[in-house]
Amino acid sequence: MSARAARVVRTPRTTPNVIGGLAGWIWLLVIIVPIYYIIVTSLRPEADYYSESSLSWPSRPTLDAYGEVIANDFLLYFGNSVFVTVVSVVVILAVSLMASYVVVRSRRRSAARMFQVFLLGIAIPIQATIVPVYYLIIQLGLYDTLWALILPSIAFAIPLSVLILTNFLRDVPVELFESMRVDGAGEWRTLWSLALPLTRPAVVTVAVYNALQVWNGFLFPLVLTQSAETRVLPLSLWAFQGEFSVNVPAVLAAVVLSVLPILAAYVIGRRQLVSGLTAGFGK
């Protein structure tokens, strides 16, 4: 948007930033050591876990731990997570974009009031509504289904999504909407062929942000599902920890496998991921 043009080039610094540099390198250790530990341990044979030093490179590196995790229905949990995330994000995007379109285009008071309600919704801590959500899901007969995760995830994602998309849609010149109308396009057509293409960067941001939230969600799956058939990834990690307990390499291999998809997304679209993460708060 407009502020991008105002980006400035910093002047070269004269003296080195000692405190910042020191903090930077110390923090690097804080970040890297645990990650290094996770990787080397996941590559260690179970038997060597108790005999080798935990930070040494495995003397007999193996992918056995990964094999064991995958043999324990990891792909099922992975599939569940993908299904829940994809369906949630698609619905979130569709309904939020439609709502934002109404907020921006409608001149009715009710549209403005709806926007206010969504704004308040941003501040609700999701966790605090878990008991009534649980009650609701049981009453609807959805307990222990993937829909029990999808529907509340969508609901709690709507406020921030509508806010971001509305702010973006407001920057679309009114003349464009008018010319669409003069050409005889209906509201749906305008939404599809004008609003959606023009808000694409915001749509990507919203998609990434919500995908991460849903993908990493733990409380809804913990409370609203029960059986292994409906288990999603974060919950499966917790379950693995209980099942494998003594097989630490396998537990950590599961951790690595759960991180890989997001790492792949990070490598492919770093900019989008960063803007998605800081959605609505960044800059």
């Binding site: 309904v95 439609m98 529907l151 509340p152 969508i154 609901a155």
Partner: peptide, 12 residues
């Protein structure tokens, strides 16, 4: 057009 968002947000 805002109805689905309102309904989902309202109910859940």
């Amino acid at each position: 057009m805002a109805a689905p968002a309102l309904a989902l947000f309202g109910v859940f």
